[in-house]
């Protein structure tokens, strides 16, 4: 098989194997385990008393600003990877300093945003 497809096939097979391990385990356990569900057994656990309200209770997602920042920086990371791998090639071709300054500007803008967020105090959970 060609090298190109070999990569994909190998990864796919390994992911499949991960699922097969769980499936096989579940199947094997079915031979060993009892199956006798009752109302009391399938009750949701909540300190041993009867659960109050729904399990899907609402809670304040306090970290949504972190999530926004995370999204920005994660996209940045995608841009950084090709640059990181090719830096050596560019440096050997004589563009090293130029490409370095370019990336410093790119990272600098994002760091400015992070500094702003820290100064604003939004990264503190009060």
């Amino acid at each position: 098989m060609s090298n190109y497809f070999g990569d994909y096939v190998t990864v796919a097979v390994f992911l499949l194997i991960g699922a097969v391990v769980v499936g096989g385990g579940v199947f094997a356990a079915r031979m060993l385990q009892p199956n006798n569900p009752t109302k009391l057994k399938s009750q949701v656990y909540e300190c041993g008393i009867e659960p109050i309200g729904s399990g899907w209770s609402q809670s304040h997602v306090r970290y949504y600003i972190f999530a926004l920042l995370f999204l920005i920086f994660d996209v940045e990371a995608i841009f950084i990877f090709p640059w990181a791998v090719n830096l050596e090639t560019f440096a050997n071709a004589g563009f090293g300093v130029l490409i370095l300054i370019e990336m410093f500007i790119f990272i600098g803008i994002l760091v400015l945003g992070l500094v702003y967020a820290v100064r604003k105090g939004v990264l503190k959970w009060e």
């Binding site: 356990a29 569900p37 057994k41 399938s42 009750q43 949701v44 399990g55």
Partner: peptide, 12 residues
């Protein structure tokens, strides 16, 4: 662990 009952909670 394998000998224990496989439970699915109510309303899950």
């Amino acid at each position: 662990f394998m000998q224990k009952e496989d439970l699915v909670p109510d309303g899950a």
